[in-house]
Design a protein around this nucleic acid. Sequence first.
DNA 1: ACCTTGACAGAAT
DNA 2: AATTCTGCCAAGG
Length: 111
Amino acid sequence: MPAERNFEKDFYERVYEVVDRIPAGYVTTYGAIARYLGTGGSARLVGWTLNRTLSLDGSKPLPCHRVVNRNGELTGKSWFGGDTMEQMLRSEGVTFLECGRINMNRHFWQP
DNA sequence: ACCTTGACAGAAT
DNA sequence: AATTCTGCCAAGG
């Protein structure tokens, strides 16, 4: 077996694991996850992987709504449809600033 | 086979 | 301090 980096095994699984560990009421950032995984500056890959996960998903409850960018903006809300993402987060007790951003100082969580 | 895009982040100007 | 550009890795056109 060549040492091909099977994203589905090396990256995807870890992303899933980390995201699944995000406690309700807390959020993390793509950069934090990427850094935790060792990919460092490839924060985009986290988002890309999550998107990939959504496709592979079907019954796995992946709380990817708890993943936002470092700015605290719900950049992926489009993938949830409307304000579903914000509603879910509010449901879990996440407080939003007037600008539609999350109070990262209070809800930021890191593995 | 090359170029563009993408759920970001950090450095540079 | 705010805006712009580049870097990251992979996938699609």
